[in-house]
Design a protein around this nucleic acid. Structure first.
Lengths: 244, 244
DNA sequence: GGGCTGATTGCGTAGAATGCAACGACCGTT
DNA sequence: AACGGTCGTTGCATTCTACGCAATCAGCCC
């Protein structure tokens, strides 16, 4: 909607990948370098970007405090933290916390497995809606209109042979999720990794987040992962009670 | 330089202090709410802000990954970290790492005292140039023109009776700092807290940051703080060697 | 159901943002 | 030390964008 602002945000995202020179940025955005310069100057004044002695541009220190603030503004994160830690310790598996954010599902916390299993998820990065447990849970919790709109816009990228690849199939899956109160992901996103996820529901019935447990099948098979379900549901219930 | 972008950044800073409604923001910026709405929409699309069900606006998740990137882009932070930890453990005192960022000095890392002494400094927030050890060190290291320009723009706010309150006095102080290779702050910023700070100089002679130790005088008097100086200088030297 | 508050949209206009071209600073080269 | 090249920076004219207005719409409380 706002052209210059949109370009400025693009610059910030680009700088997130590494430092850039002025016309490197101009080339990326396909605008005149004068334009880029003025945007950078404005952001520099507010410390969103900084410039080293060799005139290479980097992200500025304002982002430190803003990110802290963004974290604190996720009430659910703070409330959930102790419960997630316990769940992580009891099960020893990777635990994720995610929240809905205008049309997307974002990981807002992550506790690693005691085994050093690497997962591609990362705090602050969107989760796929059609093939992750948290994605399904939070999508299922959206009001119908919103949900249907999203079903249409998802790119049903086929990550594994098990990935759901169309809106109709996903709609059925979401109905099931809503009925049973939790979601599964049987190697739909990463081969050899199974997940279960459940919504955090606060007193009024509003879903404010989702928790998932992810387990590589070399550690536990799917049936064994299902045995963790009561623990997961107890955790999300406890978070919901603490939330207010 | 760019009006709309400037306003957008103001919005982000404002949201950093807490969530806002649309015309709360419009009032703060003193613009029409239509304008604010369009800026918010643009930022929403890039996940810089999010909007909850009650149409209150908050900071978005994009800031998470950007802040991580901003941190990683400070090479000195990673290099210094282990040395700072050791210095913090050996002395037991509050240790700060700061860097110069277009006309300001920003704390980019902080290790707390073993005693629970609260200091007002915070990572990502600017340090006063005229009354902190890191401020003096980094200001002293600037090229002359830059330095003189800054001497003129500083607001010489008098925090304590010891605070330097004018450019001439500060210029003399900076000469001393440059000559001796370190800076002091004898209760110039916070009463009852003394600091010493030293520059991190990499091989080529460029100053890439500053480290300081802060001690409340209930724990050590100024002479005792000076006894920590060799340890501080050894630390900054070691960081300088590791830096490349 | 009615009146409120607050969000949203269409539109014309003013002014801001843009691109151009010329200038300037800096660096390395000969 | 002069030169050429690269890259950042500035002044200016033009155009298109961002702005505010007023009307509409949605939701909420009485």
């Amino acid at each position: 909607m706002s052209q210059s602002l949109g370009r400025a945000l693009q610059i910030l995202v680009s700088l997130g990948e590494g430092d850039r020179s002025l016309d490197q940025l101009a080339t990326e955005l396909d605008v005149h370098k004068t334009t880029v310069l003025r945007l950078l100057r404005t952001m520099e004044a507010e410390r969103f970007v900084r410039r080293d002695e060799a005139h290479r541009y980097r992200l500025g220190s304002r982002l430190f405090s803003l990110a802290d603030a963004a974290r604190e503004q996720h009430v659910v994160r703070a409330v959930a933290a102790p419960h997630l830690r316990q769940l992580n310790q009891r099960t020893g598996q990777t635990v994720h916390l995610a929240a809905y954010e205008n049309g997307q599902v974002i990981y807002i916390d992550k506790l690693d497995s005691v085994q050093s299993v690497r997962m591609y998820s990362q705090v602050g990065v969107p989760a796929a809606l059609h093939c992750t447990a948290v994605g399904k849970v939070l999508l299922a919790a959206q009001p119908k209109r919103q949900r249907e709109a999203l079903l249409g816009t998802i790119e049903y990228h086929r990550f594994t042979p098990n990935t759901i690849t169309g809106p109709d199939q996903l709609r059925d899956e979401l109905d099931k999720v809503r009925a049973q109160g939790w979601a599964q992901d049987r190697a739909e996103h990463e081969s050899f990794i199974n997940c279960i996820g459940a919504p955090i529901t606060e007193r009024s019935g509003r879903v404010v987040g989702a928790v998932s447990i992810s387990v590589p099948d070399v550690l536990l098979n799917y049936e064994q992962v299902l045995e963790l379900l009561p623990d997961l549901l107890a955790t999300t219930a406890a978070i919901g009670v603490d939330y207010h």
